[in-house]
Design a protein around this nucleic acid. Structure first.
Length: 478
RNA sequence: GGGCCGUUAGCUCAGCCGGUAGAGCAUCGGACUUUUAAUCCGAGGGUCCCAGGUUCGAUCCCUGGACGGCUCACCA
């Protein structure tokens, strides 16, 4: 290091690149014929010396190009410096002409080279994958070592770009609403809590965007969407990270049927773009998105699974059936909660092909509008794919009087000890009292969507920096 | 939060019945002028996750803790 540092600048300020690795490959013929001198920067990923020559694969953002150092070309001193002092992991720029070795590898015959950044820690070993923990904890190493990993995250980016283009093309306005909220709402979940010093007040990290986006509908924006991080203070596992990305969209004058058409259109568009002609393989399941998505009702699917219509039954009768089917009944579970558990157990696992489940029981959906025909139900749908919920949508409740009653019901649940019950948001109610047009709304979990499209069963594979406990936790070893 | 499994060199991993530890890659020294996981010769590198306990002796057995993986519960 010291010896090297005396000779050259190890951390210069830039490098004038003439070609990327892709461009070198694409323009090989012309560049080789004209013996053009190219300048190519990247990271050294291996080092193979044969005495008075040295072969060094140099990777840029897209892939490798081999650099070839030859003593006769560089001179005794420079060749010695290079072959001794460059290491795997270093960033260098090489200048020279393009040729193919006799084994057919596209290679730059190096005339000159510069360090761009000297690595003082080694890259991990290249024959085995990093452990899952190290991949997640030190994503930079995963990305440095695995082209598939880079590709997966590029795909995630492309999916988000496609979603934005989909909504932009349908006159939806992309907006940003607060992450820090004095009151959280729009979903049932425990929040992260923080504190604003100057105002000396408690603030919450949002668990959903819903109530702010609806305020915008009240304000007169007819179509809005937001792609944003939400935060939920719940357990972490293969499909849950404390912060995750959610898409929410709202359209004035729409009901949940309109929203269902939009959702189907969006998901099909993505499946066509990122799948194999509109079909996707996920966890060994083959799914076809080209056909119209199946549409079933919540109670209808349950009736089929149980063998009888549960709608007319009283709570204790439903509880008895649920108990028989293996639902773990807890005290305080209402009728709709039991139905929901029964549905999760009996119906959801079989919803592999894209399926809309419609018209849910009312209690589970405090922000959805009552069903226009069926007492006790709301106008809601969930989209299931590969057995998990991908999207959730309502004809949004826009009657402020009814909304207040629903909030009061939730408040009663809260006081009864349900710490996930929704809070009464007076400011939101006041907005709604000014009049919210009939509105359709939809939310979609983007991380799960990406998991589906890239066929992985671990959310950490689609999050660049998934949440991990600190390696050196306070109190470790105590 | 519960259950099961794991934590050993920079990385990926072996380590038998309790006797103070190994491989490959990486690193360092040497040989080699077209290599592809280059090859060949040689060397260095360890708080065996942490704290207790049992034992003449613990990487190994026991207890507790930390972190990780799978899984169940909760949730998206």
């Amino acid at each position: 290091m010291e010896e090297l540092g005396r000779h050259v600048d190890l951390y210069p300020y830039g490098y004038d690149r003439t070609h990327t690795s892709c461009e070198l490959r694409d323009q090989e013929e012309a560049l080789t014929a004209s013996e053009t001198v190219v300048r190519y920067p990247g990271r050294i990923m291996a080092k193979r010396g044969t005495g008075k020559t040295l072969f060094v694969p140099v990777w840029d953002g897209e892939g490798p190009i081999q650099a070839y150092f030859r003593k006769d070309d560089l001179g005794e001193e420079k060749f010695r410096l290079i072959s001794k002092l460059i290491d795997i992991g270093d960033w260098i720029g090489v200048e020279g002409t393009l040729f193919r070795t006799r084994t057919g590898e596209l290679t730059i015959a190096v005339k000159d080279f510069t360090f761009l950044a000297k690595a003082i820690r080694p890259l991990p070993e290249k024959y085995h994958d990093l452990s899952l923990e190290n991949k997640s904890r030190r994503r930079y190493l995963d990305l440095a070592m695995n082209l598939e990993s880079r590709t997966r995250f590029r795909t995630r980016s492309a999916i988000l770009r496609e979603i934005r283009s989909f909504f932009d093309g349908r006159d939806f306005l992309e907006v940003e609403t607060p992450v820090l909220q004095p009151l959280y709402g729009g979903a049932t979940a425990r929040p992260f809590t923080t504190h604003h010093n100057a105002l000396d007040m408690t603030l919450y990290l949002r668990i959903a965007d819903e109530l702010y986006l609806k305020r915008l509908i009240v304000g007169g924006f007819e179509r809005v969407y937001e792609i944003a991080k939400d935060f939920r203070n719940e357990g972490m596992d293969r499909t849950h990270n404390p912060e995750f990305t959610m898409l929410e969209c709202y359209a004035a004058y729409w009901d949940y049927h309109d929203m269902m058409d939009l959702t189907e259109d969006l998901v099909r568009t993505l499946a066509v773009k990122f799948g194999d002609e509109g079909s996707l393989t996920y966890g060994g399941h083959e799914m076809d998105f080209t056909q119209p998505f199946r549409r079933i009702t919540f109670m209808g699917a349950l009736a089929e699974a149980v063998g009888r219509d549960l709608m007319p039954l009283a709570t204790d009768e439903i509880a008895a059936i649920a108990g028989e089917k293996g639902v773990e009944l807890k005290p305080g579970m209402g009728r709709d909660k039991i139905l929901d558990e029964l549905f999760s157990l009996l119906v959801e696992p079989d919803l592999i092909q894209p399926t809309f489940v419609m018209d849910h029981p009312r209690e589970l959906s405090p922000l959805a509008k009552a069903h226009r025909e069926h007492e006790g139900l709301v106008e809601r749908f969930e989209l299931f794919v590969a057995g998990f919920e991908l999207a959730n949508s309502f004809s949004e409740l826009n009657d402020p009087r009814e909304q207040r009653r629903r909030f009061l019901d939730q408040k009663a649940l809260l006081e009864a000890g349900d710490d996930e019950a929704q809070r009464l948001d007076e400011d939101f109610l006041q907005a709604m009292e000014h009049g919210m047009p009939p509105t359709g709304g939809m939310g979609m979990g983007i991380d799960r969507l990406v998991m589906l499209l890239v066929d992985t069963n671990n959310i950490r594979d689609v999050l660049l920096f998934p949440h991990m406990r600190p390696e050196d936790a306070p109190g470790a070893g105590a």
